[in-house]
Design a protein around this nucleic acid. Sequence first.
DNA 1: GTCCTTTGGACTAATCTGCGATCCATTATG
DNA 2: CATAATGGATCGCAGATTAGTCCAAAGGAC
Lengths: 232, 232
Amino acid sequence: MADHQVRVPAAYSVVLERLRRDIMLSRVSPGERFPPEREHAERLGVSRVTLREALRVLEGEGLIEVRRGVNGGSIVKAPAAPDARTPPALRWSELQGLLEFRARIEPLAARRAAERPTDEGLGELEGAVRGLDTAEDVATFRSLDSAFHLTIAQMADLPLLLDAIETTRMAMFEPLDRTDFDVVLPSTQRAHRRILAAITDGNATLAERRMASHLADSATEVADVYTRFIDS
Amino acid sequence: MADHQVRVPAAYSVVLERLRRDIMLSRVSPGERFPPEREHAERLGVSRVTLREALRVLEGEGLIEVRRGVNGGSIVKAPAAPDARTPPALRWSELQGLLEFRARIEPLAARRAAERPTDEGLGELEGAVRGLDTAEDVATFRSLDSAFHLTIAQMADLPLLLDAIETTRMAMFEPLDRTDFDVVLPSTQRAHRRILAAITDGNATLAERRMASHLADSATEVADVYTRFIDS
DNA sequence: GTCCTTTGGACTAATCTGCGATCCATTATG
DNA sequence: CATAATGGATCGCAGATTAGTCCAAAGGAC
């Protein structure tokens, strides 16, 4: 019987993780802001004091900027673009594991999404795909890319799967952010369009295969960035 | 921005989940007992009172029996065998989703385990496989089956994967428990032996394929049990 | 049977956490 | 400059969690 200590997270740290996730997964984009504290706290089901503790941490990390007064609020800042010269946060072997994991679960999500189309989901996917055509900055790209994959995960209608995909994306955030926007954009546009087409057609097998191939391409691009940091 | 309420679990409920997991995943088998409360509490990093709260719940659910005195303690009871006539806890569509998910991730675990053999892991696997040959009651079978799959998950050395596999097994506990021991035992013996052989040989691709086929068989058997409850 | 050890059961007092509420400080806008 | 919207700070309460203590039952040694 493994006997690791149980981890009892404080309320603020649960909130913190949630907010971090909202930012990292681009549910709020740089420039946007969280709701006013009183409202935000209520939505999260937590007291304002607790929420503020979490915001303080994010502020310290430079992920948000807190301003007061009218038009104040917690403004999400563009994460500092990772410097290509500083070593990555993840070791290559770890990243490799995440990529393998993702390559197994996201195609399943695509398959299930194709089998369970919803008007709402399809609408969001279409928006995310069309938006990519006019995306001009990294932030927009990341946001639409995230939205596309997360919407598919949502449509898959399997809580465990959604959670796994979210967590995986979270963990890979930094490496993904190192890929070159201009290089990745066109291939992503194409891949997303083709995946969406398969889902719209209800062709589950095709959707799955196209997602798999999209992820393989993406993995190659991430790996390329890592070649210079041959540590393990 | 999805705005579900954040869930801040109480300490006792975190402990509760942990203990429930220990039982359901057969890390402690029926008849075995948890350590004395004082020691157990310390191991879990929580006060005795908190631990007892959790134990009370498990006692209420009939999962453990608490006795005092020398040789007392919290004794894990054999879970009431699910009555084949009562409807399953999971709807068929939900179970189907879990089976699909499992079919994607466990083969990956087998592959990675074969690529990362450890003496400790291989030893445990061998024990779990050999034990099956002499397993005579359901409890022993469940325990060794769990141990086999979880050890592979552990060897895969990818925390996300281990967690996903644990959670999936947890969720499928009740349906799995409905399968007929005598029917499942021989095929499981054979499958586990073959998987272990592939892992020992370091043949990752073979290990993966054999795990996939093992899970497919298992899925068929679980599905069979469900045929009489055609609800969705 | 008596005594001792081991273990759960119950209670208390102190501390810590999270919450609600209130009031203050800052900022944009008309 | 008045007002409204927003973050900043503080206080006291209620509940959760803890450490510590003592009690009660069960089994074993003699």
